[in-house]
């Protein structure tokens, strides 16, 4: 509490938004679906190159509230370029990591964060926060990968070997894979998959939904 003053304004605003509780019903909640493109899969060493996020509320997605940010990074891994296609000195306009975090937190506020393999995206963001002297994310989060498993039968689960990629979800729900491996493109696929999953699970309350997801949450 006494440390609070040392954080920048945008963090304080973010933290304050958690003073309000979340709506009880799933449909009344705001979800922020996000995806990060990174230099690699090592949570400690690799860095965020791009973040895409969109807002999902009342089962609608207003594209105007969706955005995709590109982040300046010194660390670079030529190996992953072929996946995300983001060059170290590309022509896209880049912002600093701190600016990106500010923008993300402004959008997130206390809403529920949704991603595919959320643990990974959250860890990447948390490490970025840490590098910039900020605490960890405070949001409740949902993972489309683990939620998907709640929709299928036990038999199917074994068949899937407990690993499901975003490509799998796109195929299952017939979502066009246009812009796959761009942050916003992947966020969109995640969002649509999330809607389909909700339709299957029909959770009544947000807590119910979080609980069901929790079994597969490892952190």
């Amino acid at each position: 509490m006494f440390k609070k003053k040392t954080y920048p304004d945008f963090w304080n605003k973010y933290a304050d938004s958690f003073d309000n509780g979340l709506p009880n019903l799933v449909q009344d909640n705001k979800f922020v679906v996000l995806d990060t493109e990174t230099t690699g899969f090592n949570v400690k060493e690799d860095r965020i190159l791009s973040i895409g996020a969109l807002v999902l509320q009342q089962q609608t997605i207003p594209p105007k509230q969706a955005f995709e940010l590109f982040v300046e990074q010194e660390h670079y891994n030529a190996e992953t370029v072929k996946i995300h296609g983001i060059l170290k000195r590309g022509s896209t306009k880049r912002i600093t990591e701190l600016q990106a975090l500010k923008r993300i937190l402004e959008t997130l506020k206390n809403s529920v964060l949704v991603a595919h393999h959320t643990v990974y995206d959250v860890a990447m963001i948390n490490n970025a926060l840490k590098r910039n002297g900020l605490p960890k994310l405070k949001n409740k989060s949902l993972d489309t990968a683990s939620l998907y498993f709640k929709t299928v039968t036990k038999l199917k689960k074994e068949e899937l070997e407990s690993h499901i990629t975003l490509d799998d979800l796109a195929k299952i729900y017939d979502i066009s894979k246009k812009d796959r491996h761009t942050a916003l493109g992947d966020a969109y696929i995640t969002a649509i998959a999330f809607l389909h999953i909700l339709e299957k699970l029909k959770p009544t309350t947000l807590n119910d939904l979080l609980k069901r997801d929790g079994l597969f949450n490892f952190y």
């Binding site: 895409g52 969109l54 997605i61 594209p63 969706a66 955005f67 995709e68 896209t92 066009s176 246009k178 812009d179 761009t182 916003l184 493109g185 969109y188």
Partner: peptide, 12 residues
């Protein structure tokens, strides 16, 4: 700003 979602809509 680049927005793949509205591009997706336009393409459809």
């Amino acid at each position: 700003m680049q927005n793949t979602i509205s591009d997706r809509i336009a393409d459809f």
